[in-house]
Design a protein around this nucleic acid. Structure first.
Length: 883
DNA sequence: ACCGCCGGGTGCC
DNA sequence: ACCGCCGGGTGCC
């Protein structure tokens, strides 16, 4: 047997089950393993359960079964201490050599306090291992106990598991005390006073549950309510000039970066620091988050503000790596020589580099803005860590001032076992642009981001909460905001109380958000003036009448399609033939644009063939639809597809959306549209950027015009007569259509450029630059595919937009318009949407309007149920084909 | 005494 | 742990 003395507490050593194991590939790094949200290995493969490996209990539907008093034993063997009324975490320890039922007890800091006494552990082990309930503990008094302490446990789980939990406890001779009103909110039973210390009085304010309505509107207002009065100090940037609201943001960010205050919910009392939510106390002053969330609306200049921070706040308020004197000289006197080599050497240990992670689509925007806004006499080393040639040498990276990379690179480097130079550098600062990208805690990019070592951390996002409060957790975890880095504490102290309607929970959430977030909307005011004064944006719909010939073709195809679709309606197989129907609708939409566009989709996949062949056909059809460039949407999130995957039953969803469905309905998930079985292995990924612009291009076909092309050309020529300097965007979902439009543009002598998803990063940058620059030979027209480029794409040189074909998703259109209607636009923006009369396009407009209404009140709203989803889709199809 | 009782050794899981 | 529990020592009053 082991010598018990050998097991006596060693500081810094703790057994945390699998969570504590450091990943093999990165075991040279001094990682903070408590941040690791899941023990899954750093691989990433589509179609394996790894996609959503994790610990995501379906905690939203949990109810409180009851409470039970038990004992924590073995305190003297562990370093972790607990205060009176402090929350503790109960964690199974199945590999404990003395008792496979062992349940360890950890304090808020993650330090082990002791074990649950074995008789009780025997009962808990079964309940915890089978996920029948989540067991949470609060220690009513434990501050001075040497050997054991009591623990008040709450059992939370799904209603249907309550019986099993009660029975199992009963088997071992335990009985739950029924839940009381005040224990409902997850802050333990009624003796909990809400304040640390040995107080046993009842809460001062009786907890009043809010109605769902109240909760929703409170939730809505969370970010809107941020009164930014105390964040109005302005600060001049070094090396670039800013608008007033950006100067405020700069001042706020710089103060956050040099923050010496206690983090939110911490108080100092008698030389100890108390966390007022968990009642955890430490002697050492807890460090605050050096950073936060810049949640300004799109277009307010988050990128520029961040650049200003990089230029202005190098290190503890002092420029880095130069001495202040030299920097002043350098930045303000126009001196170009840099005599700083010596200084740099002596500062070797100081982190220098800022890492910026953004979606690929805004990478070029960062590069542009860095070039535009940093005056030429400021010498910054920067490195774009992207592409196969990127340097794998961490030293190269650490010597930069700015390193730019994308989430995909971050994730794939991290997953590719071995050398991720990004993870070897200690960064002065890490900035996540479009930071809501990491909202899924199980996504590889999230894990990769959490593992970065940085002194300061920023999240830039216009939408910090996209669907639910859950979205915030990854962000807080990235910011290392203790104790919320651990999902249990986030969930117990904020997420559950808020979703259960506890006003205290909402208060905590609000003060948390307020502490770390700066948010202004486009309509925010600064000193009585709007933050942004954007020129007007007008949208016109120009109705197009097809020629007789075009109408004839259209009507023929329409009747064919309608016949097929109504056959599906009669057979009740509409959703089984979804791919088919999308194909038919696509053909009609294309015919509205130009007869040569028409994707050759052989009508209907009924007829002969084995079910397998049939399925194959349908999946191929879906691929065809996707490859046409059409902006299809996901029936789950109702938004444009991100990472489309095609199911076995030939329906298409965003990968994250469908993975969530499979996860939550495990083990037998069904397709939300047709209730067929779903299996991860059968999902087919379809990369959107692999759009084949040659698909459907009929090489030898003689060029002809179409009604829409005529209308466009007429408008363009008219515009040129009025003012030849006005620049226009011509937008379509169909890149082939854009190609067709090139011919008449050339004939009429227009200088144009083009931007679509098939172009390399380099070509995109070239196209954008030539279009945006004001030179005489610069193109006046850009052919733009609807989804090319993300939100960051800046095309303010244009003030006219011609939208050649409507999108399913009105938000996708709006986003596209915002590429020129944004900061920097000097002229009114006029948008023309071409819509063919009496066609599928008009019906699409009707559906768009319905969606707009829905989106207006959708924040925090419950998701559509499966049957609602089905019905919506069916109704849409009916509307579209006039059935 | 195949008991009771005493007091020392000892102590999570 | 100022406890419980274990197991050895011990044995009328």
């Amino acid at each position: 047997l082991q010598d018990p003395a050998a097991r006596i507490s060693r500081p810094g050593f703790r057994e945390k089950g699998s969570t504590g194991s450091i990943r093999g590939s990165l075991d040279l790094l001094p990682l903070d393993t408590s941040l690791c949200p899941s023990p899954s290995p750093p691989h990433f493969r589509i179609g394996t359960p790894d996609d959503f490996a994790g610990t995501d209990e379906d905690t939203d539907s949990a109810v409180l079964f009851g409470t039970l008093r038990g004992n924590v034993v073995g305190l003297r063997y562990y370093a972790g201490v607990v205060n009176n009324n402090e929350m503790v975490a109960l964690q199974r320890q199945p590999n404990n050599p003395y008792d496979k039922n062992a349940v360890q007890v950890n304090n808020v800091n993650g330090d082990q306090v002791g074990h649950i006494k074995k008789e009780l552990a025997a009962a808990l082990a079964y309940i915890m291992d089978n996920k029948l309930a989540v067991v949470e503990g609060v220690v009513p008094y434990g501050a001075n106990n040497a050997f054991t302490m009591p623990v008040q446990m709450s059992f939370w789980g799904k209603e249907e598991n309550k019986r099993a939990v009660l029975d199992r406890l009963n088997m071992h001779g335990f009985k739950l005390a029924p839940p009381t009103k005040s224990s409902e909110f997850g802050f333990g039973p009624s003796w909990f006073s809400g304040k640390a210390g040995p107080s046993y009085s009842a809460p001062v304010h009786a907890a009043v549950q809010m109605t769902t309505e109240q909760l929703k509107s409170e939730f809505d207002k969370l970010f809107e309510d941020l009164k930014e009065d105390d964040k109005t100090r302005e600060m001049e940037a070094v090396g670039t000039s800013l608008l007033p609201h950006q100067k405020q943001a700069l001042a706020w960010m710089v103060s956050r970066e040099n923050n010496k205050d206690l983090p939110p919910f911490w108080e100092e009392r008698e030389n100890l620091f108390y966390n007022t939510i968990t009642n955890f106390a430490v002697k050492k002053r807890p460090e605050n988050v050096l950073g936060g969330i810049l949640a300004d609306d799109m277009g307010l200049g988050k990128t520029l503000t961040t650049i200003a921070v990089i230029l202005t706040n190098f290190y503890d308020g002092k420029p880095f790596p130069f001495e202040k004197k030299i920097v002043t000289l350098l930045f303000f006197s126009g001196s170009t020589s840099i005599q700083t080599t010596k200084k740099e050497d002596s500062d070797k240990a100081r982190p220098r580099a800022t890492l910026i992670i953004c979606p690929l689509s805004v990478l070029s925007n960062w590069i542009d803005q860095l070039e535009q806004h940093i005056s030429p006499d400021v010498h910054l080393n920067s490195y774009v860590y992207y592409g196969p040639e990127r340097s794998k040498d961490p030293v190269v990276l650490s010597k930069q001032d700015i390193v730019l990379t994308t989430y995909n690179i971050l994730a794939s480097d991290y997953g590719s076992r071995g050398d991720s130079p990004l993870h070897k550098v200690t960064w002065l600062r890490v900035v996540l642009d479009e930071g809501h990208t990491i909202r899924n805690p199980n996504a590889q990019q999230t894990k990769a981001a959490l593992y970065l070592k940085a002194q300061r951390r920023w999240i830039l996002t216009g939408t910090p909460i996209q669907n639910s409060l859950k979205d915030l957790w990854s962000l807080l975890s990235f910011l290392k905001l203790k104790p919320f880095t651990d999902r249990e504490w986030w969930h117990r102290t904020i997420q559950r109380p808020v979703t259960m309607g506890d006003p205290g929970g909402l208060r905590r959430l609000q003060s948390l958000i307020k502490n770390i977030t700066l948010r202004r909307t486009k309509t925010s005011k600064i000193k009585g003036k709007p933050v942004l004064e954007l020129p007007e944006r007008k949208v016109f719909i120009q109705h197009i009448t097809l020629t007789e010939e075009e109408t004839r073709i259209y009507q023929t195809v329409k009747h064919e399609s309608r016949a097929a679709i109504s056959r599906y309606f009669n057979d009740g197989t509409v959703l089984a033939h979804y791919a088919d129907i999308l194909g038919l609708l696509l053909r009609l939409r294309q015919l509205c644009c130009h007869p040569h566009l028409c994707t050759n989709i052989s009508s209907s996949a009924t007829g002969d063939g084995t079910p397998d062949e049939l399925r194959e056909k349908l999946i191929n059809k879906m691929k065809l639809v996707l490859s046409s460039g059409s902006d299809e949407e996901c029936a789950i999130c109702l938004d444009s597809l991100t990472l489309p995957v095609i199911t076995h039953c030939a329906h298409v969803f965003c990968k994250p959306c469908i993975c969530e469905v499979i996860q939550s309905e495990k083990p037998d998930a069904k397709c939300p549209l047709c209730r067929n079985e779903l299996q991860v292995e059968n999902l087919v990924e379809y990369p959107l950027d692999k759009l084949d612009s040659t698909a459907g291009k009929k090489a030898d076909q003689e060029w002809i015009s179409s009604s829409k092309v005529n209308a466009l050309m007429h408008a363009l020529i008219d515009l040129r007569k009025q003012n030849p300097t006005i620049k226009s965007l011509i937008v379509s979902q169909f890149t082939v259509f854009l190609s067709l439009i090139e011919t008449p543009l050339r004939e009429s002598g227009f200088v144009f450029t083009r931007l679509d998803g098939s172009m390399t990063q380099k070509k995109r940058v070239e196209a954008i630059q030539s279009f945006q620059n004001g030179q005489l030979d610069s193109p006046t027209i850009m052919l733009l595919s609807l989804k090319a480029g993300g939100v960051g794409l800046n095309l303010t040189a244009a003030s006219r937009v011609f939208l050649m074909d409507p999108a399913w998703n009105p938000a996708a259109e709006d986003q596209c318009f915002d590429r020129c209607h944004r900061l920097g636009q000097k002229q009114d923006v006029v948008i023309t949407k071409f819509i063919v009369k009496n066609s599928v396009e008009e019906n699409m407009l009707a559906i768009q309007n319905k969606k707009r209404e829905l989106a207006a009140g959708a924040f925090g709203a419950k998701k559509q149920t499966t049957s609602e989803m089905k019905q919506t889709k069916i109704n849409e199809i009916k509307t579209l084909i006039d059935l």
